[in-house]
Simulated assay, not measured.
Amino acid sequence: MTARPEGSPTISVVIPVKDDANELHRCLRALQLQTREPDEIVVVDNGSSDASAQVAREFGARVIRCDRSGIPAASSAGYDAATGDVIARLDADCIPARTWIETVADAFARRPDVSVFTGGARFVDGPIALRTSLAAGYLGAYALVTVPALGHLPVFGSNLAFRRSAWQGIRSHVHRQDPELHDDLDFAFHVGERHRIRYLRGAAMGISMRPFASGADFGQRVRRGVRTVLVHWPADFPPVRWVRLALRRALHRLGVPVPRRRAAP
């Protein structure tokens, strides 16, 4: 593992966790083996009853506790606590490639015009022959459904990185109080208003197929996605949002200031 090169942004890794000690151990071990070490790791304990917090501390992570239930609250608490120039987000059951942090840092150093990078993934469990293709199908379907609602590229919270300055601009707008929202999609609605999102090739990530092991789990994800879209209506009804974003981009190119949206209730 190498230290941060001169001129490279500092990187904070945020991992929300609840009762996932074994998977978290595997994830933190993968972060320990990175070709470029993160500047800090923030593990958000969302009310675990197992040894998740202890595992995090054993790996030298900074542990903060979020007692409000739900991934939106836990993720937001981690982003608030992060101190790096760039916040990299993944889940406790993820396994990043050894070059993940280095790839993310290099991308932000090369592209000062981009505030958010999101990457793809492959499954690390399930049928071996189908892991890559099934993950590609899942992420492709997610993009196909969400791009029309957003008017731009969505983000994938298991392989996500963004400038802390971008988070500071939207932190009062995200719906962190609602545990039944899809936090990735909610984040994308807000960050995509003013910031450029790009896909980062080469940021390899392994993810678990556990959330799709049952119809109930998959159904819950679909319901949360639909609820997240509807929460943003009528202000983000697709034709309205598309026109607003096009106008914002045109005004930005002309150097005209654009008013900010109101904070989320």
Rank of each mutant, 00 (worst) to 15 (best):
residue 120 G to T: 09
residue 57 R to Y: 00
residue 97 A to E: 06
residue 95 I to Q: 09
residue 55 V to Y: 01
residue 132 T to F: 00
residue 106 D to M: 11
residue 82 A to W: 04
residue 87 I to M: 11
residue 95 I to F: 04
residue 89 R to Y: 08
residue 138 Y to A: 11
residue 50 D to R: 02
residue 121 A to I: 01
residue 59 F to Y: 15
residue 91 D to G: 12
residue 133 S to N: 07
residue 100 W to T: 08
residue 128 I to T: 14
residue 43 V to H: 03
residue 15 I to A: 02
residue 36 R to Q: 15
residue 97 A to M: 00
residue 113 D to P: 08
residue 27 C to G: 04
residue 105 A to M: 11
residue 92 A to M: 06
residue 26 R to Q: 14
residue 78 G to L: 06
residue 73 A to R: 04
residue 49 S to R: 13
residue 52 S to N: 09
residue 102 E to P: 05
residue 92 A to H: 08
residue 59 F to M: 08
residue 75 S to L: 15
residue 136 A to F: 01
residue 99 T to H: 14
residue 16 P to N: 06
residue 140 G to E: 06
residue 14 V to Q: 05
residue 136 A to T: 06
residue 128 I to L: 14
residue 51 A to N: 12
residue 53 A to E: 09
residue 117 F to W: 11
residue 109 A to D: 11
residue 15 I to Y: 01
residue 51 A to K: 10
residue 112 P to R: 13
residue 78 G to P: 05
residue 40 E to P: 08
residue 124 V to K: 01
residue 96 P to L: 09
residue 31 L to A: 02
residue 83 T to A: 13
residue 70 G to R: 08
residue 138 Y to D: 12
residue 95 I to T: 14
residue 121 A to M: 13
residue 92 A to Q: 07
residue 68 R to M: 10
residue 40 E to W: 05
residue 95 I to Y: 01
residue 62 R to E: 15
residue 46 N to Y: 02
residue 110 R to L: 14
residue 65 R to F: 10
residue 66 C to R: 15
residue 77 A to P: 03
residue 46 N to V: 03
residue 29 R to L: 13
residue 34 Q to G: 00
residue 136 A to V: 02
residue 62 R to Q: 15
residue 58 E to R: 15
residue 102 E to Q: 14
residue 105 A to I: 12
residue 93 D to M: 09
residue 95 I to K: 03
residue 57 R to E: 15
residue 20 D to Q: 15
residue 106 D to P: 00
residue 72 P to W: 08
residue 85 D to N: 10
residue 39 D to F: 09
residue 21 A to T: 00
residue 140 G to L: 06
residue 54 Q to S: 14
residue 67 D to V: 11
residue 58 E to P: 00
residue 126 G to F: 00
residue 47 G to V: 05
residue 30 A to S: 15
residue 116 V to L: 04
residue 62 R to C: 13
residue 139 L to E: 06
residue 18 K to V: 12
residue 26 R to I: 11
residue 102 E to V: 01
residue 99 T to Y: 04
residue 58 E to M: 12
residue 114 V to K: 01
residue 32 Q to E: 15
residue 42 V to M: 04
residue 33 L to M: 14
residue 77 A to F: 05
residue 132 T to I: 05
residue 68 R to W: 00
residue 132 T to H: 10
residue 139 L to I: 11
residue 46 N to Q: 09
residue 30 A to E: 11
residue 99 T to I: 06
residue 91 D to W: 05
residue 76 S to F: 07
residue 106 D to C: 07
residue 40 E to S: 10
residue 64 I to L: 12
residue 52 S to Q: 08
residue 118 T to R: 05
residue 74 A to R: 03
residue 35 T to F: 04
residue 141 A to V: 11
residue 98 R to H: 13
residue 120 G to D: 08
residue 35 T to Q: 12
residue 58 E to N: 13
residue 28 L to G: 04
residue 122 R to P: 00
residue 73 A to L: 04
residue 142 Y to M: 10
residue 127 P to F: 05
residue 47 G to K: 02
residue 57 R to C: 10
residue 97 A to P: 01
residue 35 T to N: 09
residue 83 T to H: 06
residue 98 R to I: 10
residue 96 P to G: 06
residue 80 D to A: 13
residue 42 V to P: 02
residue 103 T to F: 03
residue 127 P to T: 04
residue 22 N to H: 13
residue 106 D to H: 12
residue 127 P to R: 10
residue 68 R to H: 12
residue 83 T to D: 11
residue 53 A to L: 10
residue 142 Y to G: 00
residue 65 R to L: 04
residue 74 A to F: 07
residue 115 S to F: 11
residue 134 L to T: 13
residue 46 N to R: 03
residue 24 L to W: 03
